[in-house]
């Protein structure tokens, strides 16, 4: 059966390369999965690991961080700083039972709209195979407030 699960990816795009790559993908009418919700940052080095955890906690199925290729960072080597943090974050996420495909770091130059679109498509497929994350509901066992209140009324 075809998998119709539409994952939600939070995409942190750097202002200089990957955001422009995404712009280019759009301008060139390259169609890709409408799953990535973009957040523009000046540089991937601005992306705090807390942002990634926050997104996963608040319901994202995956997080994509996209920056300039190493050596092409507009802030000399912000992308390498991002890579350093990302490498350690990956080790942490592994311990938290979060699959590698859920948080990805990719490089996309301003001219690589196609590559960025492909990265989103690829990630979407990978997340589709993994299924939803829904951290608060499935991991923390939280239920929406409204439901719990209703249950409380029935129980009371």
């Amino acid at each position: 059966m075809e998998n119709h699960f539409q994952p939600i990816i939070v995409g942190f795009l750097c202002n200089w390369c990957s955001y422009r790559a995404a712009d280019l993908a759009g301008t060139a009418r390259i169609h890709y999965a409408p799953t990535m919700r973009p957040i523009r940052v000046m540089c991937t080095a601005r992306v705090e690991p807390e942002f990634v955890l926050k997104a996963l906690r608040e319901g994202a199925d995956g997080v994509l961080i996209a920056g300039c290729h190493p050596g092409e960072c507009h802030y000399v080597e912000g992308n390498i700083k991002a890579l350093r943090r990302f490498t350690l974050l990956k080790a942490l996420l592994r311990q938290f039972g979060i699959e590698e495909a859920r948080v990805q770091l990719v490089w996309a130059a301003a001219s690589e709209g196609k590559q960025l679109a492909e990265a989103v498509d690829r990630m979407t497929e990978e997340l589709r195979a993994l299924g939803p994350l829904r951290w608060r509901e499935t991991v923390l066992g939280e239920q929406p407030v409204a439901r719990r209140m209703a249950e409380a009324e029935v129980g009371g």
């Binding site: 690991p49 807390e50 190493p70 050596g71 000399v76 700083k81 350093r84 943090r85 350690l88 974050l89």
Partner: peptide, 22 residues
């Protein structure tokens, strides 16, 4: 606390200089 420390400590790791390829 953990995420902040992770970010800080990974930031000062001296590896992966610009003279290396990806």
């Amino acid at each position: 606390q953990g995420a902040r420390m992770l970010s800080a400590i990974a930031s000062v790791v001296a590896a992966g200089g610009p003279d290396q390829d990806e």
